[in-house]
Amino acid sequence: MQRENRRFYLGVFGTEEDILGATNEARQRGLTIVDVYAPYAVHGLEKAMGLRYTRLPLFTLAMGILGAGLKIWFEFWTTAVSWPVNVGGKPWNSLPAFIPVTFEVMVLFAGLGTVTAFFIGQRLIPGRKAKLPVHGVTDDKFALVLEETDASFDKESTQKMFEEFHVLEVVERVEQEPIQ
């Protein structure tokens, strides 16, 4: 099935102030921000883009609880149920002695689980080819990608707005999918 072509309008900026300003402005004008590309995490850009919070912390919490729960059960089961061995007269249920490993496994589950979730969720996969909007966004350039959603998209005024923020380059692209 032939997918419809979409038109993207890109501004390339040189400083974090400019990209912040341009993004804020674009959002205030109600333009559709597809994404912003930056060489480093610019403080406040997520607010400028109006991104929603992420649910990663909840996932971490769930994985932590899962890991700790499984481990404490396993320790109790091996030590007191499956094959109880008297070591140094310690009780079968040696809860204080079970806590260290439970803690470690909790951290292991939570940590590796969240990293994996992030990689999968963001499609960061070994060997995947990077699609950059313009060259240099991993170095010192910032790119704001807008979508020309309908005919009312006013290129001229957008270009003017970009220029206010010292745009380095403006690119227009027609593609079937956003870059990400």
Binding site: A38, V115, L124, L132, Q180
Partner: peptide, 17 residues
């Protein structure tokens, strides 16, 4: 580098992570 392209949607989650 896992196809990293500096997308800010990724950056935001990266910072949280």
């Amino acid at each position: 580098s896992l196809g990293w392209n500096g997308s800010y949607r990724t950056w935001m989650r990266y910072e949280t992570l």
